[in-house]
Amino acid sequence: MTTATASEYAAAPDVPIEDLMACPHCDALYVARLPEPGGRAVCRDCHTVLISPRRKAGARIIAMTLAVMILVISALFFPFLDINAQGFGNSTSILDAASSFRSGYMTFLSIVVAAAIIVIPLVRTMLIVYVLTPVVFDFKPWPQARRAFRLSQELKPWAMAEIFAIGCAVALVKVADLANIGFGPAFWMFAVLVILVLVNDNYLCTWSVWKSLELEEE
């Protein structure tokens, strides 16, 4: 459902500055107002989604984020994929995949892969739990909550767990005629994890979080 509920600033020039919001993509100025349940506010000029609150989103996000954390950590230690060809077999875990670039300057690549598929998604989920728990349960925000939330937003494009999952599919097809491939438990955990991460990001309305952080601290 798309409803533009942020009215344009020009219509109400005497609104206090706290109630204004600017579109982060095109700088159009609006009077921020919560849209009706299920609706969302969209920028009239560039169609960027400005506000999209969901009911009970906070508690759901925390629950899903905890699930993500458990899945990431357990997926690390179980075998991910195994392979069999002419009597030779090998199984690999996510950690093996990340550390497969071992020699010389390739180590850098190992660090990048490990960061993109394990460290950054994990750090992001922890930051989000840290920021949202006080908001949901009506405490005073924990120290540095704003910095934590900002960091979690800055890390967003660098968390690539879902891309890794599609990468697995491509890799599987590539070697399918070379050998037999089996899925380990970690593969299924990772599949669930990817879906959770995507749904979670969809639920998080950054504007609402900033607003509540601001209100709680006053």
């Binding site: 392979i83 550390s99 892969v113 598929i117």
Partner: peptide, 14 residues
Amino acid sequence: MIDVFVVAILSSLV
């Protein structure tokens, strides 16, 4: 980045 991940998976698996 998908290509880099594919290489990572393949070279640790195969």
